[in-house]
Design a protein around this nucleic acid. Structure first.
Length: 422
RNA sequence: GGAGACGUGGCUGAGUGGUCGAAAGCACCUCGCUGCUAAUGAGGCAGGGGAGAAAUCCUCUCGUGGGUUCAAAUCCCACCGUCUCCGCCA
């Protein structure tokens, strides 16, 4: 959510921002409603002031005088009911519109409509060259018996999967290495809920617009698609001490995604699944743009370093306006080389939001002068499993269909080659 | 699933119809005292919105939303949340 004062004073910038994000929003409509809201409020406040004045007179008045004032009050009050009703209606509309106003993308965000317009800003490592015809991860893993997609579908339905034997070891090894790598950066590990109340989804900006992408329980809670939701909810409705910044969390959680709009996409394998696990970096910092931008680079670099440890070729893109979420100011995606598809596939997403989320979540802090501010928030994937396994097994495959274990994972996997689980 | 209790400022916690946006303590800030630290004295200190150059003034907020009343933190209703006990259970 943006500050209404900011929207009023910078309506051109807000409109341009929405345009860049290809999001339809009625700023003029909002401003008209806001005028109405201000006017009604003023009227009502004048009447209330009158009421309060009279009310204190009643306390002092005695006898007949008192009766007279009370009667006058009754008239005054009936005149207020209508204004109150009107204001309530206007407020409802106002709030609904406020939730639709997107945050403004940074100057450095390129124009574009979809992820195909994202701009590559970095490329690391050589695309893996094979002396044989490389296989895709589905065939590789199924043949080794470290994943089972057929039974996955039998039991869990479309996009279901089992990991098995060394597939589990591999996933576990990634988790452990991630825990070590990201903790050493100063992030505090946290195991966070996936089953979360609606409030935190509204606060992070996943609702009200993203209802279709979420699984909902019969109790009205939702299954989170990312640990970001619970982690941002952690300090919801709190006033923080300035000394805590930057707050840096490393959240681990199961993630659930309906993939409602992705029916034809990535129908096989571990790229797009309904249920996975993710380490997520979440940061709160002082309300300063430079600090946000600096930490954004830092978060993204943390993940790049992790991929470099695994020694998998990747590229980093800066997402175009049309590929940004409602609250995001700027976003980097890291994409790993997937030999089976001869393309780079997204593994990570790092974004910052300024105070868009903290406003909605009512997270505040007091500065040295005692003034209240909404801190800035950022988040970035640390690493998701099992998607990361796709790039690991495909890039590390050998002619005989076995998988070399990446050097850094050997201590955790306990072997150098994955040669099959029966 | 059954029964009950509770929800007040950054925190703890008092407050059962007007003089309450709210005692007291902690934390914090300013000034004073004090070689330093510690201790201590005086004062200040909730948030949102509006008017104003400012001082200040107006208004709303005691979980949320309704209701009663001239007047609600306080009474009534609904909802949300938290806790305790019993039952079940990994």
């Amino acid at each position: 959510m943006l500050d209404i004062h900011f929207i009023r004073e910078n309506s051109d910038i807000v409109k341009a921002g929405a345009l860049k994000k290809h999001i339809d929003v009625d700023i003029d409509g909002l401003l008209a409603i806001d005028d109405k809201r201000k006017r009604l409020r003023q009227e009502l406040e004048t009447k209330r002031a009158e009421q309060n004045r009279r009310s204190s007179e009643i306390q002092l008045a005695k006898g007949v005088e008192r009766e007279k004032v009370i009667e006058a009050m009754q008239h005054l009050k009936s005149g207020m009911v209508e204004s109150e009703e009107q204001l309530k209606q206007v407020m409802g509309e106002w709030q609904r519109l406020m939730l639709t106003v997107p945050n403004i993308p940074d100057m450095s965000v390129p124009d574009g409509v979809s992820d195909s317009d994202n701009l590559e800003v970095k490329r690391w490592g050589e695309q893996t060259v094979f002396s044989f015809a490389p296989q895709g991860h589905v065939e590789l893993m199924a043949a080794l018996g470290i994943a089972d997609f057929e039974r996955g579908a039998k039991v869990a339905g479309f996009r279901g999967y089992f990991l098995k034997g060394d597939g589990v070891l591999l996933a576990n090894a990634v988790w452990q290495l991630a825990l070590k790598h990201f903790s050493m950066k100063g992030l505090v590990p946290m195991s966070v809920p996936s089953l979360v109340r609606r409030e935190a989804f509204l606060g992070t900006g996943y609702l009200p617009q993203g209802e279709d992408d979420l699984y909902k329980t019969q109790d009205g809670d939702y299954l989170a698609g990312t640990g970001e939701v619970a982690t941002m909810g952690y300090h919801m409705n709190e006033t923080l001490d300035m000394g805590v910044f930057p707050v840096r969390f490393l959240a681990f959680s199961p993630c659930f995604r309906r993939e409602a709009g992705a029916h034809g996409k990535d129908v096989r394998g571990l790229i797009r699944v309904h249920e996975f696990f993710k380490w997520e970096q979440v940061v709160l910092c002082k309300a300063e743009h430079d600090e946000s931008a600096r930490l954004h680079e830092w978060l993204n670099r943390n993940t790049e370093e992790f991929i470099e440890l695994l020694n998998i070729p990747y590229r980093t893109v800066v997402n175009c306006g049309g590929d940004l979420g409602l609250g995001q100011v700027k976003k980097y995606d890291i994409e790993l080389w997937v030999p089976g598809e001869q393309t780079y596939r997204e593994i990570s997403s790092a974004s910052y939001f300024h105070d868009f989320q903290t406003r909605r979540l009512n997270i505040r802090y007091r500065d040295i002068d005692g003034n209240m501010h909404f801190p800035h928030s950022l988040n970035s994937t640390a690493i998701p499993t099992p998607r990361i396994l796709v790039s690991i097994v495909e890039n590390y495959q050998q002619p005989n269909g076995t998988i070399k274990v990446p050097e850094v994972l050997i201590p955790y996997v306990g072997k150098t080659v994955i040669s099959g689980t029966q």
